[in-house]
Design a protein around this nucleic acid. Structure first.
Lengths: 191, 191, 191, 191
DNA sequence: GATGAATGAGAGTTCATTCAT
DNA sequence: AATGAATGAACTCTCATTCAT
């Protein structure tokens, strides 16, 4: 990817943080990137294309970072992943971006291009969880549950907790984390 | 509430179904209601006021319907509620509306009026679940868990499952329902 | 005039003070009068009619107050009138109203009904001045000038000084008053 | 200034002549300039900005034209200036524009940006008059009056005469001019 | 005499997109 | 590759006016 395109996508991220998705304008992105609106259209036909492209590279990098998470054993790795997916990296940018991302997600039903990207990302996350659970089962540290099903349960729970945190401001993530530990993860662990 | 206001809110619902929240216009609502745009402003100062009002009555009615759910014992009632919150009443309108509602929720961080309404509604849902669990404990049909914590876990999971269903199109609700049964609800039941 | 109409015109005065002429709305007048917009239209066909009516009674009362000014001799009376026309009765309401009145005057070229009222009022003011000067000449206390011409000079000067005071905030009225005394009124006085 | 901006300001002038200030719309200006409304907002953020900008360049050019007036001696120059300020250049456009300008002036109390421009312009006119009078005094052709005070008197009178002419249609400017000559200017001239 | 409900026309402003350079 | 100028369509909101009661 050209440097200019990189810069545009970086600017898109920050513009999303500053304005949210609903108020995101091409002008705001151009301003943030220090280029003209026309240049955005030179590199991306439409606003949608730009955002789709942003979404693609963003999820890709996110997936890379998640892959990089490693641990000695499956149980520890699962904990690590759950923490990351539930709490993210809590700097202030990420909070703002979380809001914008939620708005973007809410557009997915109306924008197949977004939906496909998000679906692929979700697929990835489930696979990471399922694989980790499967490893645990193979290594005898987890009971023999259906990995895919458990992964989906975990994803739904974490997703909901984050959404509620973002939309309502009311942080139940710690509590949910504990409850998840008690009800689900402890069921999983052998001894 | 005057008949006209009722009609306007009804029209808002349908306009949301047809256009989604991001593309919801006063014109669309007016058209759906068969009245002029100016009349909307006669009854509601701003678009936001109208939507806030809509949200208020909508959640109120939703809460009434939930309250009406009844069952012989707490376990059955809990099942009923979980089913309702997870699956809704699946007509096609409700699917469309679910999309719009998700968009609206995503605006909550930027619109305190929306957030307050949604927070109150969430509070209600948690209370309904927690109360049911508490009843079960008192009647000896549930183990002695922390009702509030369990309620939050359930809510997060159901919320996430619905969101994923809506945004990704990929329905994991049945699977999540089963997993929830296995991991959480079965933990709850005495015997 | 009915009490209601009186009340409406009184409300128009205060609404003009509060909003200025450009931002004067029927709603503002109705609010100030504590009645409905429709009632304004019941008593006055159009906004213009209402304002024209207001302007008529306002100038009428103003003229009555000016007529009430009296003094022992023409020189003193002239001074009194000049002071009144230049400075008005300087309470804060009158300042606000002065602004609105200036806006209204500026509409006169586009609204014959306003222009006619204002022209009649101006005619009256000139006549009062000219008559006073004429009296002075007859009584031998003023030199034999053209009363009408002098009246017009005085009016133009006073009008301009007030307008500048209102529009620019820069009060030259005292200075103009002195200069007028030196250059014009002293020319007038015998001895 | 870009040609387009020049054209927009030119169009603003003519739109003011055609519609008056109260009825001046962005659409009318755009139509007159043969461009789209959006282009106006591309060059000027708001309607107010556009008008303020118009007012600035208009008064600037007016001041340039006044500066260009020259004469052999101060007395003659004063006459020239008084004539110009009282009568303007009497084409029909200028009559229409005079009306609009009066409306704009009447908005000055509510719009600091306008007031500042107008105040600066008024300051300039007073200075031109005062300077001319001062020159005359130094050259011994005028009596030793207070130049500033006399300038203010002249300005008030001329301003009032023009306002009355515009608002009432009743042209007293010739008469006022004569009276001014008799009472003020003749007082000024040595011999 | 008085009101509330309703309208239509139009206002200023925003924004993704296009095009000539 | 990059820009500035320009557009068209759409948006929310305002307001004098009307009409049924």
């Amino acid at each position: 990817m050209s440097e200019t395109k990189e810069e545009i996508l970086r600017a898109t991220y920050h513009a999303l943080c500053d304005h949210g998705f609903a108020d995101l304008t091409m002008q705001a992105i151009a301003d943030e990137a220090g280029v003209s609106k026309s240049l955005l259209h030179y590199h991306y036909d439409t606003k949608q294309d730009l955002i789709t492209s942003f979404l693609g590279t963003f999820t890709e990098r996110f997936e890379d970072k998640l892959d990089a998470l490693d641990a000695d054993d499956p149980a520890e790795r699962l904990d690590l992943i759950v923490d990351r997916l539930l709490f993210g990296q809590d700097d202030s940018d990420q909070t703002d971006f979380g809001r914008a991302f939620l708005e973007l997600r809410a557009q997915a039903p109306h924008e197949p291009a977004y939906r496909d990207q998000l679906a692929a990302n979700e697929e990835f996350l489930r696979a990471v969880l399922a694989d980790t659970i499967e490893d645990g089962i193979e290594q005898g540290v987890f009971h023999d549950v259906d990995p895919e099903r458990t992964a989906r349960l975990l994803r739904a729970t974490m997703d909901g907790a984050r959404s509620q945190h973002i939309t309502l401001g009311d942080d139940t993530r710690e509590v949910v984390r504990d409850a998840l530990d008690d009800h689900v993860l402890s069921d999983l662990r052998v001894e």
